[in-house]
């Protein structure tokens, strides 16, 4: 037992370093992806056919293709078309697109959950379409979507583990390196798993508490 803890103590700095990178990638992908999701959520039901179809295609591909394929498409595929990005940039681009696609559906569901009476009230007091969206639908829709968005963010953190395949030195790749050099795969992977759980478990708990509290304050 003591031996295990000592091993862990030795590996921890390296793993934390990689974890920091995972968190950076997650944060950036969400910061770019969620606003992108909002734009797509507004574009999918648009009146213009061109906008609708472009947005829908983007969303279907972003949600239908495995994250691994998206990552490798950006890192290995784009260079053959002339655009070469670092593994960090590739990770952020691919994950941001993925986030945008998934969150657009989450946010759209949030908008639909806003009671129809709210939209009617906005109409009768003379707000035009843009103002109705801005002041009535979006603020309420985002509140509804918040728990699902947070849940998705937790999944995004786990998804960064796949960036191992595009040579990003994040947590899993560091753990795998240590494993392949020391052959102590199980201990190092357990530690990596614990590090993931350290954030994901409290975060999941927080989201379910948040869901309950938001449900309580909603106006009937």
């Amino acid at each position: 037992m003591m031996e295990l803890l000592n091993l862990w103590k030795g590996w921890l700095p390296e793993l934390i370093d990689g974890y920091g990178l995972s968190l950076e990638v997650t944060a950036l992908s969400l910061a770019i992806g969620i606003p992108l999701g909002l734009v797509l959520a507004l574009a999918v039901p648009a009146k213009s056919r061109a906008i609708r179809i472009t947005a829908l295609t983007f969303v279907e591909i972003g949600r239908g293709a495995p994250v691994l394929i998206l990552l490798q498409f950006v890192y290995f595929g784009l260079p053959t078309a002339g655009l070469t990005l670092t593994s960090f940039a590739s990770a952020v681009v691919a994950l941001a697109c993925c986030t945008g696609a998934y969150t657009s559906e989450i946010i759209r569901a949030g908008f639909e959950a806003v009671p129809y009476g709210q939209k009617e009230a906005a109409l009768v007091i003379g707000l035009n379409g843009v103002d109705a969206l801005r002041f009535v639908v979006i603020p309420q829709g985002l509140r509804v979507a918040l728990p699902a968005l947070l849940g998705f963010s937790i999944m995004m953190l786990q998804a960064t583990s796949l960036c191992f395949t595009i040579a990003l030195p994040e947590l899993v790749s560091r753990a795998s390196n240590i494993g392949s050099t020391t052959f102590e795969y199980m201990p190092v992977l357990i530690l990596a798993g614990l590090l993931f759980a350290a954030i994901c478990v409290p975060a999941t708990l927080f989201v379910s508490v948040l869901e309950r509290r938001l449900g309580r304050h909603a106006v009937r």
């Binding site: 786990q158 796949l162 990596a192 993931f196």
Partner: peptide, 8 residues
């Protein structure tokens, strides 16, 4: 559910 599939 808190640990990525690749780690498993």
């Amino acid at each position: 559910r808190s640990i990525p599939p690749i780690v498993w």
